[in-house]
Design a protein around this nucleic acid. Structure first.
Length: 481
RNA sequence: CGGGGCGUGGCGCAGUCCGGUAGCGCACCUGCUUUGGGAGCAGGGGGUCGCCGGUUCGAAUCCGGCCGCCCCGACCA
């Protein structure tokens, strides 16, 4: 990519466009190790803001943060049959340390269920110890074959919530509650309307009884799984002997859940909103919400303009708006505009001698439009612009998702869509693995979810889109990342 | 692992066919002039041409081997 000029347009090459946006906005860069990336300060700030948002919601629902170690005895992973089968191929294993072979190899965590249940077994004795509501913000390693910045990297950052409950009902409720938390976060913070539902057995997490997911639709009409919430039943409790004494005096295994969202969210954010100029970042997650660009000709102008710019910065900062002034000398205003647009700053305030004379500033929105605003109202109007951009992005994404969703599809339509513009395709499904695999084989599309009730079609499909037998459910197909 | 592409200053590339001591654009540094949508001029710094070996008076260029990266497919948050 030629940084000084434009980036690859989306229409020309979406994958290249995606990489260009990341490089241009300085979100991340490739690390020396294959599949690994460096998250640069601008990208990491977005992650910090995501953490803030999500963590607040986790705390509000009663969860506490903790930290479990990176290294897990290999034998732990092997205790849950399905779990080990799912993760064995993609684990990195430490066999040598301290200058000698280890007695037991240590796995670099791909996820932490096993070590957590090993510990919960020690900590839980009675129903009075339940529920346990934990979360941790950590890195994990999964040796994937093909990687992509933010979307799938060998090492990634995420949060994993783990909870243990006395009853199945309580654990099921928790699973859905956290799915709802994700949905709310995606919509309110990321301005990304998602689709929620349950995964088919073929697509669920290895070790879970049921997996729920939130799926977003990207601008190339492919689906991206942005978060998952698992009802684990008693699978891990049984594997690790996590039992508690009931009020009645009997012994029972705990019912548990786990749920996670990762730095992949940043990839989703990019692919959902950005354009051919670069990143578009929803204000709530923007490292900088406002950039003030001063304009001057003479030294005298410069002094005056800088004074006003500094004052505006202070006023905005006092209202908890993330703002900075681009004071760089020897760079033309236009060049600064392009740079901050590429980085996704939602609002730009231009202040030149003419504006100072008229006690105004020019307010430009990253999503388009430029208008003069009186300096005395700048805080209020900037705040309004940020709100408008946030809701506007969400609305645009929602309209796109609806426009790119086909409901009540026939077999031919499903095939045609997946060979063409893709998107979400709703249709009836008989529930058989044979049909699911046949569709995947033929169209490369997978069932993203069996949609939750609020996403289901008004008319429930009666026949399976593939075999024509009686449908047991409605399903949503898409080509996924 | 299969298919495709590519390794030459920080980035993007030319040069490779046809061997002759490395060049262009951007970026960077200094100075002056500039600054309302990607500034101009002048000067300057920076490269074991992915690695190893071979052929040759001489290799970025020819030959052999190896390594790495990106993209597309099979696994996955």
């Amino acid at each position: 990519m030629n940084v000084s000029k434009g980036i690859t347009p989306r229409a020309k090459d979406f994958a290249q466009w995606y990489n260009d946006v990341i490089m241009r906005a300085e979100l991340a860069d490739y690390a020396p190790v294959r599949g690994c990336m460096v998250i640069r300060p601008w990208g990491f700030r977005i992650w910090e803001l995501m953490q803030q948002g999500l963590d607040g919601m986790f705390k509000a629902t009663g969860h506490q943060n903790a930290y479990f170690p990176l290294l897990i005895p290999q034998s732990f992973l092997e205790k849950e049959a399905e779990h080990v089968e799912g993760f064995a191929p993609e684990t990195a294993v430490v066999t040598r340390a301290g200058g000698k072979e280890l007695e037991e190899p240590l796995v670099v965590r791909p996820t932490s269920e096993t070590i957590i249940y090993a510990m919960l077994t020690k900590w839980i004795q009675s129903y009075r110890d339940l529920p346990v509501l934990l979360n941790q913000w950590v890195n994990v390693v999964r040796w994937e074959m093909r990687t992509r910045l933010f979307i799938r990297t060998t090492e990634f950052l995420w949060q994993e919530g783990h909870t243990a409950h006395a009853t199945q009902e309580e654990a099921e409720e928790e699973t859905k509650r956290m799915l709802g938390v994700y949905r709310t976060f995606m919509e309110e913070w990321m301005a990304l309307p998602v689709l929620t539902g349950v995964k088919t057995p073929l697509e669920k997490f290895a070790g879970a009884v049921r997996t729920y997911a939130v799926e977003g639709l990207m601008q190339d009409n492919r689906a991206l799984q942005l978060g998952t919430s698992h009802f684990l039943g008693q699978n891990f409790a049984k594997a690790f002997g996590t039992q508690f004494q009931t009020a009645e005096g009997g012994m029972e295994y705990v019912w548990s859940t786990s749920w996670g969202a990762s730095t992949r969210l940043i990839g989703g954010l990019i692919m959902a909103h950005s354009d051919d100029i670069g990143l578009i970042c929803p204000p709530k997650l923007a490292p900088l919400q406002v950039i003030v660009v001063p304009i001057w000709k003479t030294a005298e102008d410069r002094t005056k303009v800088m004074e006003v710019a500094a004052q505006i910065r202070q006023e905005l900062a006092q209202s908890d708006i993330r703002v900075d002034v681009d004071q760089r000398d020897g760079m033309k205003p236009g060049a600064k505009y392009y740079e901050w647009e590429g980085r996704g700053v939602p609002v730009r305030l231009e202040i030149g001698p003419r504006d100072v004379a008229g006690s105004q500033a020019m307010l430009a929105r990253r999503t388009g439009g430029k208008e003069p605003v009186p300096l005395e109202d700048v805080v209020q109007l900037v705040g309004k612009a940020l709100d408008d951009i946030q809701t506007g992005l969400c609305e645009t994404a929602r309209e796109r998702r609806e426009a790119e969703s086909l409901r009540g599809a026939t077999k031919d339509q499903l095939i045609e869509r997946m060979e063409g513009r893709a998107g979400f395709v709703y249709a009836g499904f008989c529930g058989s693995e044979a049909c699911e695999l046949a569709i995947k084989e033929r169209t490369k599309a997978t069932i993203r979810v069996l949609p939750d009730v609020e996403f289901q079609s008004a008319e429930t499909p009666s026949e399976c889109v593939w075999c024509g037998e009686k449908a047991t459910t409605e399903a949503v197909w898409a080509k996924a990342y």
